[in-house]
Design a protein around this nucleic acid. Structure first.
Lengths: 242, 242
DNA sequence: ATTCAATTAGAACGTTCGTTTTATTTTTGT
DNA sequence: ACAAAAATAAAACGAACGTTCTAATTGAAT
């Protein structure tokens, strides 16, 4: 009987289906919180109405912007796609710039929270590496339009919001850096430069949401992709057990 | 004396500096050819003037667009940055859409030509893989603003031009696919799926020009990056010699 | 049935945009 | 120095944009 081993990561870590079952809840919470923070506008009082319409608005913005760009999307486009009148739309944001910031903020909140939670749940460098890769891919699969939008429209941000995006990007790269560096410190990983390693891993994860259509055409599932990426990374970094 | 071995790749293949020395010539040729094709407009007769001003225009477009996006760049912005009046500008392209297409066409021509040339110059799968990785990185380093622009503004294209971009993207991925597949057929590479392999390699190469600023901040040279990527890929695919 | 919450269609505003045009001036090659 | 080539500054055009506003209408909860 195997007894004094650290517990294996739970099943949900390495299957997109079970990952999704543990996720669903938190989406609405964040919608609402992001709106509560802006009590300046707040012409809408019912929570249910807020969530329903924010969902319609965000969905429409992502659909239009990810086709032809946020700058090329007019408010008239958005009104048509969302089915809301111009007057109604401006009850939920103060302007086009505000809309952009809300979407970026949304994506940062959800991603940052979930990623750190799930990596903290495992202990060995190897498990952390695997959990980080899988979780990142699952997140970007579940929220692909958000991820794509955030990347492509980041250049339209200004000032404080731009800095937040850069900081968030750095933080998620540091997460991989720390895993690689810890693994080397524990003699579990080969001594390749962890700085460049973290960059390359992120580059491969990024491709999943930037080229989502390509992988869909080829019928590559997120689990297949995750498995391939992890084995690729493992071969280079993780020392053979024994 | 080693005699019956295939020749090693020339020095210029694996040093950015020597790569640049063999490159310089062809840039002006393509500028001019891209303008000759549009004999509809052709209010400018002197080749020297054409090349000089196209260079100014393209440089200015890339500078502005890569900061705030092509859609956000106004023709008045372009006039100011390039130092050319509105009237002068419209002697070199028929409109803003045309300008976008010229830049995309430019990048495709240079890249496609050079990449195929240099890979055909070596023979073994291992050498081809290395040559493809290095050449792609060197090209995207030399033409970073072009590469970045092409990727970020591809969604603004329509119809035939959009298809050309997709086709070019597919062709350059197939190039890596063929190298991996050939390597496996010759029993020189491990039997990992070459389709996904080609995608991941391209993802890592793409990061170099999409995040150019990050690597500059960290003082990572293109040669360091190329070396790291190649060793990463080599570990996973290339069988040990012997 | 009444009240408050929320949405509607559409006009209207000031701005900015891409593009064209003008008459004049500068640059270039010989 | 002369003639052709090219660039100039500035105005003007209609179209599209983000945003605001109005008066009338719908929806939902008590």
């Amino acid at each position: 009987m195997i007894q004094n081993r650290p517990p294996n990561p739970p099943e949900a870590f390495f299957s997109f289906e079970s990952f999704m079952q543990t996720l669903n809840l938190s989406k609405q919470d964040i919608y609402q919180s992001s709106f509560d923070e802006k009590q300046q506008v707040r012409r809408i009082r019912k929570k249910k109405t807020i969530i329903k319409n924010l969902d319609r608005i965000f969905g429409s913005v992502l659909k239009i912007s990810n086709k032809k760009g946020f700058k090329a999307m007019s408010m008239r486009d958005l009104s048509l796609e969302s089915g809301l009148s111009m007057g109604a739309l401006y009850n939920y944001f103060s302007g086009k710039d505000d809309l952009l910031e809300m979407l970026q903020h949304q994506q940062r909140s959800i991603t940052g929270k979930l990623l750190e939670e799930r990596i903290a749940a495992v202990s060995s460098p190897r498990d952390k590496l695997k959990a980080a890769i899988y979780t990142h891919l699952y997140l970007s699969e579940a929220l692909q339009p958000w991820f794509y939008f955030s990347f492509m429209e980041a250049k339209n941000l200004t000032g404080a919001e731009k800095e937040k995006t850069v900081a968030s990007e750095r933080a998620s790269e540091k997460l991989f850096f720390d895993i690689l560096a810890d693994g080397q410190a524990q003699d579990a990983f080969h001594p390749h430069d962890p700085r460049l390693g973290a960059s390359l891993i992120k580059a491969m994860l990024q491709d999943w949401y930037l080229k989502r259509g390509k992988y869909a055409t080829r019928s590559v599932s997120v689990d297949q992709y995750a498995d391939y990426v992890y084995r690729f990374v493992e071969t280079f970094y993780v020392k053979a057990e024994g």
